[in-house]
């Protein structure tokens, strides 16, 4: 099992009252959610969370952020959010593995207003994303996190190093290996699909 580090934070800061800390956090949480919600959601999704779990997990990430906002340096929000997301995703996967219900690979969140299938224009995209997840599933958690951070979320290796709390050299080697596995799996999947066609 991977051991992900504690997110970037400032535990050495003087402790303040709970009310003040939560209050301070509210404004930053709003701004942060506006800016980073989609990225965190997408990151969690690509880390392998089932569609039904992603929204909950994203909320959880921002709740963690809200609770610790006063200890996070300005500018370090994205790193903190991604680092929390890695841990939340890991927890969610464990919980999902323990739960009795198994979700199918494909599916979108429930929408009471319009439960009809997704419009045709999106089908190609959805199919590609399902294949993407299939390929990503062949990576280990460590390799997957690095690949998603760098190649999908366009974080630098330095950022990824901060988020995952591992040296840049390790990031580089994991990324190299992750890309190799990804390419191999994608090629294998393509061959399989072409055969089916």
């Amino acid at each position: 099992m991977p051991s992900f580090p504690v997110p970037v934070s400032r535990p050495d800061r003087p402790q303040r009252g709970a009310v003040a800390r939560v209050s301070d956090g509210a404004a930053r949480v709003r701004t942060c959610m506006d800016t980073h919600y989609d990225a965190v959601w997408r990151f969690l999704r690509r880390l392998g969370l089932a569609p039904a779990d992603v929204e909950d997990a994203t909320q959880k990430v921002f709740l963690v952020f809200a609770g610790r906002a006063s200890a996070i340096d300005p500018g370090a929000e994205r790193s903190f959010l991604f680092a929390s997301a890695v841990r939340v995703a890991s927890d969610a996967r464990r919980k999902r593995a323990r739960s009795r219900e198994m979700l199918a690979d494909e599916g979108e969140s429930f929408d009471v207003q319009d439960p009809s299938p997704t419009v045709e224009e999106n089908i190609d995209d959805r199919r590609m994303r399902r294949w993407l997840d299939e390929v990503l599933d062949t990576l280990s958690e460590e390799h997957r996190a690095v690949l998603v951070l760098v190649d999908l979320e366009e974080q630098t290796m330095a950022d990824a190093s901060d988020v995952l709390g591992i040296p840049k050299g390790t990031i580089a080697s994991r990324l190299r290996r992750a890309r190799e596995v990804f390419e191999e799996s994608a090629t294998a999947l393509k061959a399989k699909l072409e055969k089916e066609v």
Partner: peptide, 10 residues
Amino acid sequence: LLRSAKNDVP
């Protein structure tokens, strides 16, 4: 495959 991820939105 990698490009398709960009269009994935909540």
